[in-house]
């Protein structure tokens, strides 16, 4: 459970896995911008093409990638139906009570679905191909300029890295305590709201106490290893760009250019 529940990292070796995490984060942002810049089907098709390429090179099973959509399927359907029924367009196909289905509404809804699906899939691709540790390193590195305004980037990254280390442990611990209380007849599955909230207490209190105990020991262990927080520290790992990163960069740059050019020459569909 602890492995699957967090980070959903898919362990394998691939072109995408080996990209620099900083670039991957930047690419994700660029890609999302591209999705929303694209306002005609040709532009969206370009975006889709790049995503398929990325999935192909990531060696993450396609089904697994699309699994991420399952979680927000309801949201997608809901917003699509809403737009479909209420969008104010000119070419009316059908009308009933307060609902109208228009050509523009259909096109807009279609765009919305594609954009949402692309958005979710590419974000999940990032977490599938990047370990939480690398992600933290990437974020830390990207935020580095903020140290100029005295923002504690290093400490923040330290906190994130420790959180990543301890989340699986705490999930495990929660499971253990829940089991222990279940064995003593605690019931977490049935009952009204009040009794369910009450049922959480025998889990929550031991969990809190153990977290404090862990925090205390970890604090001691860190101090014993000469951690002083503010003091100047060095850093062992440094991220480096490779040929892969350059290649991926060119691809994303081409995508943005393509989308912008298509936007100018073909005009907007939406």
């Amino acid at each position: 459970m602890k492995d699957v529940a967090f980070g959903q990292y898919y362990p394998t070796k691939s072109f995408v896995h080996n990209l620099d995490p900083r670039l991957k984060i930047l690419f994700l942002i660029a890609y999302i911008v591209a999705i929303f810049l694209a306002n005609n089907f040709a532009g969206l098709a370009c975006c889709l093409f790049v995503l398929i390429l990325a999935i192909g090179f990531s060696r993450v099973p396609v089904l697994r990638v699309f699994k991420a959509i399952k979680g927000i399927l309801f949201l997608i359907i809901f917003t699509t139906v809403l737009n479909l029924l209420f969008y104010n367009g000119e070419t009316v196909y059908a009308e009933w009570w307060i609902f109208t289905i228009t050509k523009e509404g259909i096109i807009f809804s279609a765009f919305l679905v594609v954009r949402l699906v692309l958005l979710i899939t590419c974000s999940s691709l990032l977490t599938y191909t990047t370990t939480p540790v690398a992600l933290t390193d990437g974020i830390e590195s990207l935020l580095y300029p903020l140290t100029w305004i005295r923002f504690p980037v290093r400490e923040l990254a330290q906190i994130m890295s420790i959180a990543l280390r301890y989340i699986p442990i705490l999930i495990d611990e929660t499971e253990r305590i829940m089991n222990a209380q279940k064995a003593r007849g605690a019931n977490f599955e049935t009952g009204g709201l009040v009794s369910r909230v009450k049922a959480v207490i025998p889990v929550l209190i031991p969990l809190l106490l153990s977290s404090f105990r862990r925090a205390e020991e970890l604090g001691d262990a860190m101090e014993a290893r000469c951690y002083t927080g503010g003091k100047k520290r060095t850093k062992f790992k440094k991220l480096r760009f490779t040929w892969r990163d350059v290649l991926a960069f060119l691809l994303i740059a081409a995508l943005i250019t393509g989308v912008v050019l298509l936007k100018i020459y073909l005009g907007a569909t939406v």
């Binding site: 253990r176 089991n179 007849g185 207490i201 025998p202 929550l204 209190i205 031991p206």
Partner: peptide, 29 residues
């Protein structure tokens, strides 16, 4: 579960109640 008692590893980490009495009574109730 009332017939098969299970004492987990480090069972003291599952104590939660304010008093010893309440904690022991938990399973009974």
């Amino acid at each position: 579960r009332s017939k098969v008692g299970m004492v987990m590893q480090y069972p003291e980490y599952q104590l939660f109640a304010e008093t010893v009495f309440d904690d022991v009574a938990f399973g009974y109730k």
